[in-house]
């Protein structure tokens, strides 16, 4: 990895991270602009494939930036991109966490915390819906999604079971 690319990763993803309100994936279009349009590091198709791969793998979705970094700078590029994307906002979150501890129990803090809860839950539901739209290429995957929804909602068994079932059904039916 050249020094130029290192700094492009640091400043590019560092700047994007600071505007990523709502989550890292909210700024996916901005990442596309940086990686495909501005620097020409990869094609549209490369970008989409790496996003799909990061989605299929476990772990924070934001790790997709690691794949972009890997593409231009190997292991070092991967680490640089991930750290640039996570360190600045982590400092901010830690500072906020300290403030929250100090203000714990204040009426206004409780109001704000309570008020943001439905947005947090609504956005989890929305991300599930978006994932489902991407995977429902026929009635069988849609049925797997519906069954998995019911299983996780109505039972307390580990959701890992539905992933195993999904993988097996994938082999058998798709």
């Amino acid at each position: 990895m050249t020094a130029t690319i290192f700094w492009q990763l640091v400043f590019g993803f560092g700047a994007i991270s600071l505007v990523s309100v709502g989550g890292g994936i909210a700024v996916l279009p901005e990442m596309h602009r940086l990686v495909v349009d501005v620097h020409g590091w990869m094609t549209d198709a490369d970008f989409a494939q790496r996003f799909a791969l990061a989605q299929a793998a476990p772990g924070p979705n934001i790790l997709v930036v690691g794949l972009f970094g890997w593409h231009v700078g190997g292991v070092l590029g991967m680490l640089t991109a991930v750290l640039a994307m996570t360190l600045p906002t982590s400092m901010l979150a830690f500072g906020f966490s300290r403030l929250r501890t100090r203000l714990a129990g204040r009426f206004w803090l409780r109001v704000v915390e309570r008020g943001l809860v439905p947005i947090a839950v609504g956005l989890i539901a929305a991300s599930g819906l978006i994932l489902a739209q991407g995977t429902a290429t026929g009635w069988m995957p849609a049925l797997v999604t519906a069954a998995s929804t019911l299983f996780v909602w109505r039972t307390d068994f580990s959701p890992l079971w539905v992933l195993v079932a999904g993988a097996l059904l994938g082999i058998a039916l798709f």
Binding site: Q55, A56, I124, A125, S127, G128, L129, L131, A132, G134, T135, A136, T137, P141, A142, V144, T145, A146, A147, S148, T149, L150, F151, V152, W153, R154, P159, V162, L163, A165, G166, A167, L168, L169, G170, I171, F174
Partner: peptide
């Protein structure tokens, strides 16, 4: 594809 379909349901559930 099978894991992704199941994971989507897990998130909605």
């Amino acid at each position: 594809a099978g894991i992704a379909a199941a994971a989507a349901g897990m998130v909605i559930g």
